[in-house]
Structures are given as C-alpha cells and as structure tokens.
Design a binder for these strands. Structure first.
Length: 565
RNA sequence: UGGGGCGUCGUCAAGUGGUAAGACACAGGUUUUUGGUACCUGCAUUCGGAGGUUCGAAUCCUCCCGCCCCAGCCA
C-alpha cells in the first residue's frame, strides 16, 4: 500500500527552511513540531492539512510531532471535542507516542513565568475595563494611550496578581498586561493582555484556576516547554509573531521559530468552525459527522479513506498565498484510491423492470463476475441471473438521443457478465410512464460475448429481481451551490447558498453478495460510483452513502448536446 | 491615509540571475464486457503593471496596481 508513494515530495518553503536549519545544525539537528488544536469543535479538512504538514515534516526529517490541546479558554472547551480530535488524528494515520500534551498542564509554570515578568517590570495588573482597554488601544492609524495603572510598583503588581489567582476579584475586574509599547504600529504589541479572570470550570483542571492565560502569552511558552523547533501556524498569526518572539526573549527561554502558511479553502464548502457549528445547531445537516460536512468525521462517514486525504494534503502543497482549492482535486484523490481497492458490485439505483421473454421461468443461472479488474487477487464471485431483472431506468430510452448506446426499442446491449439482450416491447401505465420492458436474450452470449463476434455498443448493469436486496442509498452532492459560499447578496448569509439537493435518498436494488456488507465497507457500484456502508445500516436494512460518482463522460456529452439544441 | 503578508495557466503549485516542473480541470485520441480505469496528445513566448540593472530577469532595483490579515479580557 505504501508503494504507491510514487509521487515524490514537492518542495515547499517550510521544507526548505527545515532542511536549511538541519544543514546549519540548528537545534542540534533536532526537528520537533506540534499540532495544537483547541478542543472547542471538530476537526475539518483544513486541520487535516495542518496535521499532515506537522506530522509529515517530523516523520520526513526524523523528528517528532506532539498532539497538544491548546485548552486555555475553559468556557469553550469540552472533553467531547478533545476525544473526537484524538480519534480523528489517529484515524488519519498519525501517532504521537504515549503522551498527549495539554496547555493546561503548564498553567503553574506559566504563572511563574508571569511573576518573573512582573518582577522584571515587564508586566502589570490593569484595572481598566474591557471597554476602556479597547478605547485606550487606539486605532490602526492612531497610537494608543497608556493605562493609568501602567506604572504600579512591582510589589503592588505582585500582590494584585497573586490575589487575582486566589480568586479575590470577579471576572473582568483586572487583567495582567505585558508592558511593551502603546504606540507600536502593530496593535498586538500595545500592552497585550496575558491573563484574564475567568471563574469557570476547566475540562481538566476543574476549579483550580480562575485566571487563564491568553493565546499570545501561552502559545510560545507551550512550544518552548516542549522543545518545539518549528512552530507552524496559519497566516493570521503572522502579526503576532513579534509578540511570540518578545515573550520568549524577555524570559530568556528556548525559542522556537514560528512559521506561517496559508490555510486551506475548498470550493463549494467552508471551513469556519463557527459556521460549521451553526449548520449543526440549526439542523441544516445531521450533526458534525454528516457526510456532507468537511469535517474529518464527516469525510470518514462519507467514505473517504485516510490515504486519500493524506494524498490530497500532499498534492495541494503549502505556501503563503491565499487560495481556493478545487474540490474536484479531493474527489480525484478518493476515486484514485478506491479504484484500486474497492470491490465492484452491481446495484440499480433507479430500477426499471425487465422481463426476458424467452428465458425459462424459475431458471437461475450463476454467472462469474470479477471483483476488481484492477486487482486480480480480489478474485471472482457468482451473481444470479433469472427471467426478471432490474436495470437502471436511465439505461433505457424510448427515443434515444444521438450517441446513446444503451437500451432502446429494437436495440441490443450486453448485460454485464451475462447475456446480450434485445428490447422487443415497452409497457407503460396510464400516464405514459414506462413500467416494464420486454427483451429477448441470446443464449449463445452467456458471459457476455458472442460466438459470431458481433459487437454491442453498450454494457449495462443489472440485478436479478428475485435475488435482489433492498437498500437505502443516500446520494450526496456539494453542500453549497456556489464555489464560495460567502458570495451572497446584501442582507443574506452563507445559508442562502445551501444546496437544497445536497442529499437525495433513493430505494435501490442491489446484488445478493452485499448481504455481508458491514459498516464502513466500501464498494464500487459499477458505472455509478463509490459507496460505503453507513453506520445507520443493519443486516435488515442496508444503507449506503455515495462517496463520489464515477467520472461520467456520457453525462458530459448529453449535457453538451442539450446545450446545443 | 499605521503595520504585517501575498500576487507564476481556469484551480493549486515548483522555480531563489541562465532562458516557465508537475497535478487537478478542460479538449481531442487509443484500449476497454464499467461511456470507469489505463495510456497518448494539446493546454502560460510568459510570470499583477510600468520602468531600470544585466550578455541574460519570474528571480535584483524603483515606482504603481490589486488581494488578505491586525483595533477579543477568542484561538
């Protein structure tokens, strides 16, 4: 399976930086990265990019990658999320050793570092309200104003900070701020808040703390404590780097290098955790693992494999420019993976009854079918054939368009692995709807080829009626109708771009061999696409999710034809 | 009109002074008992624009244009 790594690694700026560092023996040749999610939501394909990047780099350069929960805000974080995140990272195929790291494990040490800064006159307790702090901060073009509390004595600051920790003050009464520069053109440097008072129960430390560190203060410390050599994050943190560096420099501790890259944007979907949460809470989807969601759990349920997602992450590359990756690339990756691995099977999504007039009633023939033409080792199976069959409604046209070479009155086609049949009659109901068609078969063509060598243009799939299994099939399409769901008119939001046809449920007839299908098994329904067994499925009622369709050249031709006429 | 970034094919993306990789998409074609797969061919005389340096520039310099991020006691 690993041998398919024929696509060699393409250079990117982060790889280049690390390779250069290694050449210069920076960090004694050590490479240590980390993936630091906040446990306040589910991971999505954008996180998968970061995970593959961090774990991939570590692996490539003989280093390690930590999984670390950045749990510094107790009001938003929950164990449920932390557990789901661990499961997803593991499912993607990554291993972070025996230890899972938590920012909250460093709270005591962070506090001591803060005291150190206070003693050095580099931090102070501010009594200004949140609102006042905002006003004092100034604007993009206007310098800020120093807080009247900025020059308290070290002793007073020490006393106040300790009492903050003890819980003597209510939420919002004070904050600890770094004393940097209120006139800095970089707003992040205008005396940023290091600690705020939050009387809240933390998912791990419980009620032990009532002051919690802010991201900018905490993150560099977490990295430093763990000996991270390359702290890779997304572009929006670029303006925070001077602060990251400032704290570590003041403390004189190990100083990791922060490197920023552009986050992933995918067409026809969106990555905002907030909006994804909204989709879940408002019921536009059926949970975080809805197969239409770009979450790892959604993709897993949809039938995406870890291999396909890792391949995708490698192919999109890593750079600093904002971009929007075509979701067709993700679809290509899963098709490529499943083409090699998915057993082929026949399933009729929209059944039309076919009666073979000259085939004996009650006769059953067991025909050989190949499980995967891409992999002979997957062997063969028997599929039952009888007088009554189902074929795909779209594989029959009373009035076939040009270049259509499936079934039509008087036409002959091949039933895959079975016989050639010719349509001799069409039966309709009072509305003119075709209810069944009658055909004759050529007994000489068993297996699908004729002794006289005559050729048929079309091969269609089928299922024997008396042997067919019923199955519910969930057909998924893009969640949004626009490449950029955020592209909306005045007064509207991304919800108005929700695709009303993102889920269609059909009752299908599938071949008998699927009776043993188990949850998460994947198949190629020949000529239709790749499907996997949904967790809702049971032996009594089979349920499949369509992962992705097969490429459909005919659909393109027909669309082009319609466009012309 | 402060600061920090970024602009190479429809979409990603290599390239770091020596004369534009690759992938997806798209368009043709070959093979085919999946209109699938595989394979072949085509697809940027040009790198946001204009000047300049150089024998030579996507790569160096200057100016201009466009897009993104920053004013949470979120991360």
């Amino acid at each position: 399976m690993e041998s398919k790594n024929s696509n060699e690694k393409v250079p990117n700026f982060i790889r280049n930086i690390i390779a250069e560092d290694l050449k210069n023996n920076k960090n004694e040749g050590r490479v240590q990265t980390r993936f630091p999610p906040e446990p306040n939501g589910y991971l999505h394909i954008g996180h998968a990019k970061a995970i593959c990047l961090n774990f991939g780099l570590a692996e490539e350069f003989g280093g390690k990658c930590n999984l670390r929960f950045d749990d510094t805000n107790p009001v938003k974080e929950e164990d449920e999320y932390a557990n789901a995140i661990e499961k997803d990272v593991r499912w993607l195929g990554f291993d972070w050793g025996e230890k899972t790291y938590y920012a909250s494990d460093y709270f005591e040490q962070m506090y001591e570092y803060a005291v150190q800064l206070v003693k050095a006159g580099k931090a102070y307790v501010d009594d200004l309200s949140a609102d006042e702090i905002r006003q004092y901060r100034g604007t993009l073009t206007q310098a800020g104003v120093e807080s009247p509390y900025r020059n308290r004595s070290v002793e007073e600051n020490l006393d106040l900070f300790e009492r903050m920790r003890k819980g003597e003050f209510p939420n919002g009464a004070q904050v600890l701020r770094a004393k940097i520069d209120m006139s800095s053109p970089n707003l992040n440097m205008r005396d940023p808040v290091m600690y705020r008072i939050l009387h809240a129960k933390h998912h791990r430390t419980g009620d032990k703390w009532c002051i919690y560190p802010m991201y900018d203060w905490a993150h560099g410390l977490e990295d430093s404590i763990e000996g991270i050599t390359h702290s890779i994050c997304t572009l929006e943190f670029e303006a925070h780097r001077p602060l990251y560096d400032w704290f570590l420099e003041q403390l004189g501790v190990f100083h990791p290098q922060q490197i920023e890259f552009a986050r992933l944007n995918l067409s026809y979907t969106m990555m905002s955790k907030r909006k994804l949460l909204q989709l879940v809470e408002e019921g536009h989807v059926n949970g975080w693992d809805d197969p239409r969601m770009p979450t790892i759990s959604g993709l897993r349920r949809r039938g995406y494999t870890p291999e396909s997602i890792r391949d995708f992450a490698e192919r999109i590359g890593v750079a600093k420019r904002d971009s929007m990756v075509d979701i067709a690339l993700l679809e290509h990756c899963i098709r490529e993976d499943l083409n090699k691995r998915a057993p082929r099977v026949m399933g009729v999504l929209n059944p039309l009854k076919v009666i073979i007039d000259n085939y004996p009633e009650n006769q059953v023939d067991e025909l050989d079918a190949i499980n995967n033409p891409e992999d002979p080792e997957m062997g063969k199976r028997k599929v039952p054939f009888s007088r009554e069959l189902y074929i795909e409604r779209d594989d029959f046209r009373e009035d076939p368009p040009k270049k259509y070479f499936r079934l039509a009155p008087g036409r002959e086609v091949r039933l895959r692995y079975a016989y050639y049949i010719t349509c001799v009659d069409v039966v309709k109901d009072e509305n003119g709807e075709v209810t069944e068609i009658h055909c004759t078969y050529d007994p000489q063509t068993r297996g699908g080829c004729s002794p006289d060598g005559r050729r048929v243009k079309g091969t269609i799939h089928w299922v024997s009626t008396p042997h067919a299994l019923d199955a519910e099939i969930r057909l998924y399409d893009h969640l949004f109708t626009k490449e950029d769901p955020g592209d909306v008119d005045e007064g509207e939001d991304f919800r108005s771009n929700l695709n009303p046809e993102s889920l269609k449920i059909v009752s299908a007839k599938v071949e008998r061999s699927l009776e043993n299908a188990r949850v998460e098994n994947f198949y190629q329904f020949e000529r239709k696409g790749y499907f996997c067994v949904d967790p809702d499925s049971s032996k009594e009622s089979l349920i499949f999710n369509r992962t992705v369709t097969l490429r459909d050249t005919w659909a393109k031709i027909e669309k082009a034809q319609k466009g012309k006429s």
